[in-house]
Design a protein around this nucleic acid. Sequence first.
DNA 1: CGCTTAAGTGAACACCGTTAGCAAACACTG
DNA 2: CAGTGTTTGCTAACGGTGTTCACTTAAGCG
Lengths: 261, 261
Amino acid sequence: MTKPPVGSDQRTGGTLSRRERVREATLAEIKEIARRHLVEFGVAGVSLRAIAREMGMTAPGLYRYVPGIDALLVAITADMYEELADVVAEADAGMPAEDTDGRILASLRAFRYWAITHRAEFSVMFGPRTRLDPDADITRALEAGRRFGSTFFTLFDRLVTEERFPLPADEDLPESLRRELRSFTGTIGFTSPDITEGAAMVLTTCWVRLYGVVCMEVFQHLNFVVGDMEPLFESELQNMTKDLGVRYSPPLRVAGVQGSS
Amino acid sequence: MTKPPVGSDQRTGGTLSRRERVREATLAEIKEIARRHLVEFGVAGVSLRAIAREMGMTAPGLYRYVPGIDALLVAITADMYEELADVVAEADAGMPAEDTDGRILASLRAFRYWAITHRAEFSVMFGPRTRLDPDADITRALEAGRRFGSTFFTLFDRLVTEERFPLPADEDLPESLRRELRSFTGTIGFTSPDITEGAAMVLTTCWVRLYGVVCMEVFQHLNFVVGDMEPLFESELQNMTKDLGVRYSPPLRVAGVQGSS
DNA sequence: CGCTTAAGTGAACACCGTTAGCAAACACTG
DNA sequence: CAGTGTTTGCTAACGGTGTTCACTTAAGCG
């Protein structure tokens, strides 16, 4: 009885035995249904019994594939990070490689658009860590999260090397902040020599602003006061890009932005 | 059989009959235990049966006081908004009335400090609306939220009248954004004639930044990368106050900030 | 004091996660 | 092909949850 790892086990050589293939398919079906229940009923509405019912089997059977409900949620969270990373990377790749400004705008807008069209998913990814075992294995989710961030980091790196905006001098930052920023650049695996503490500081500030405006829109904490948050987002985007020395251009009008998840 | 409203019913005249008094006390006990379970086990760990057990009664009995678990959560959420509003207002009142700069800094820091020392509460208040009936009666929570915001609005109003910072001209803002901002100032009950759309814009931007940095700290989405978020918060505070024409001054060192809820 | 009404209980229903033991299907080896 | 070990899924069961209903008890009021 081998412990069921919840991630997709990459078989050496890529050849999967018949058994492994059907196993992968079942696991994929479980996660697909879980994901669907997540968007339909919210995170509290994801249950092993309901998934099993829909699959025509019983709940204990799922334990052959997943060690428990918490691990399943962590697993689909990791999947969602990868999906988001793909979406952002695609938006980035959809612009001409030299057009750093356009790539940045496209990436950031892709992030927001994915967020507001995937509210439930965004909530479990970027909201409070409710209902997740503190000792759950979230390494895969963290890894996907890192990959998601790397798209932005790379673009930011280009801005720094192109000297688009004035960097705050490291000496101007308080020592406590500099220490945190150093650990930041270290963990991120950012090897560019141009990433000074000042640059890390700017990057973090931008991320906080983006995170704030998107969270506010998804969590609807201004919805009693602001109906359509898009103008506000674009305005924030404009502010941010101005600070980064990026040329802002308004978005192409896309039909059907109002789609509620 | 009267429907049990979950909020504290203010009796006309303030005189409560004995029956009403003990009823209020029981309701208060229910909410007190619910709150304790919330901080101890998270929002998923709040259950009517557990509360009843601790009170020495059975779960159905609680239905005399509360229409259901969701309504109970909404009720304590409203309480928490009021508590947070009090805390911020106290911090504000703790500074000399003329010292607008100090009052603002104190209020913002009080907000963050309450947030990081009340993670569970903050999560249900400002996180995604998980586990809350869409049709639940959240008017009391909204009202308390409004009162919470008003402290900041009032201080901001002073900054505007004192002309601390240059206001963006209304004409520079796109029409779609202006419309949202108008609805904002309207809903907020902000009657000051100085609150132009540009001013509302600056206020909103600041709130988004504050919300972002505090959410990020409480939800711990940078914790694999930044240990102590306080320097980052102070840095953001410095940036924000600079834009507002507020004189920044570093915080007084408080012992025991590290206290984990 | 008697009557009305509120408070609380027990049983029941329908869910949930999770464990243990068992039977059938499967894959593989001699 | 037969035999064997593994994988898969089931049933039963335990303890937990929210919620409804019928009922008894207790308190307050006229």
